[in-house]
């Protein structure tokens, strides 16, 4: 492949990716705005039975009403907030635990590193949802926080493994030895060399984990293990609409669209982030 061809391919690819980034940022931004807005305003009080049973979509009730006559659009708007809280909470927890364990493993003695690596592999082999279900089931009643915690823990193994590999790669570089000889402490090495180097890749990974966390929360709620009512999780809305899917399909379609749009938005954003943040791709330009 000649150089010219490579350049053309990469610039057009870059344009495409920046478009995906824009769409992603738009979708996620929309959900963030809606989520923040629900703190002060929703079209209807989400708990109030403001309409009749299973009303169709109208100008008043944009997504119709559920069996209790509650405005679905308001509930879906609140669902945005719940999803974003869970996603953020889960990646903060997963990130903190995962990065810490990953760094520890990277610095640890050979035996401890092997043990940690094997432990992480086992955790990763365990389905995320199943692990989260176990954590929720063993805690005293489900709540929004147990869901966040459970998903965060489940995600932390993936973050830890990635951090470990990335950190080890950096640690094997000659300049680390040079830095050590010149008197930098291990903490200094982490702060000056490792984190700045692995950060872009980690960020993209965390963004993807965010999307997975949103889906995991919807799944847990669908199973009745997520945020308990009255938290209007999309998963629970989907579950409640299941019995009425033939008579009022909008009840299942609307929260479904909300869920899909946020997750696609996050994935596109992560894709775009990778272009912006990844130094190896940037240099190719």
């Amino acid at each position: 492949m000649s150089d010219t061809v490579t350049i053309i391919a990469s610039t057009s690819g870059r344009k495409r990716r920046s478009l995906t980034f824009t769409i992603g940022a738009f979708l996620v931004g929309l959900h963030i705005i809606v989520g923040l807005m629900t703190l002060i305003w929703t079209p209807f009080d989400p708990g109030a039975m403001s309409g009749e049973r299973l009303e169709a979509a109208s100008l008043l009730h944009l997504a119709g009403t559920d069996r209790l006559g509650r405005d679905l659009f308001s509930l879906i708007m609140i669902g945005s907030r719940i999803a974003l809280i869970v996603g953020t909470g889960a990646i903060v927890i997963g990130g903190l635990i995962g990065i810490t364990i990953g760094l520890l493993a990277a610095f640890a003695s050979k035996t401890l590193d092997d043990v940690l690596a094997a432990g992480l592999d086992i955790l990763i082999a365990f389905p995320t949802l199943l692990l989260a279900m176990l954590i929720v089931a063993s805690s005293d009643g489900s709540s929004l926080w147990t869901a966040i915690f459970a998903i965060g823990i489940a995600n932390s193994a993936i973050v830890a493994r990635l951090t470990r590999i990335l950190a080890k790669r950096v640690l094997s570089m000659d300049y680390i030895t040079a830095s050590r000889i010149s008197g930098t402490s291990w903490m200094g090495v982490v702060a000056i060399h490792i984190l700045p180097n692995i950060w872009p890749t980690l960020l993209v990974n965390l963004a993807l984990q965010f999307g997975l966390a949103v889906i995991a929360e919807a799944s847990l709620s669908y199973l009745g293990l997520g945020a308990p009512p009255p938290n209007a999780s999309w998963g629970r809305l989907l579950q409640e609409a299941q019995g009425t899917v033939y008579t009022a399909p909008l009840g299942a379609i609307a929260p479904g669209i909300a869920l899909v749009s946020l997750v696609i938005g996050i994935n596109l954003l992560a894709d775009g982030l990778r272009d912006l943040a990844d130094p190896t791709r940037r240099s190719r330009k």
Binding site: G47, M49, L68, G224, P229, E240
Partner: peptide, 13 residues
Amino acid sequence: YDPHPIVAQFLQT
């Protein structure tokens, strides 16, 4: 299982 969760929400309101 249905209908308990939705009934509980109704009672809550």
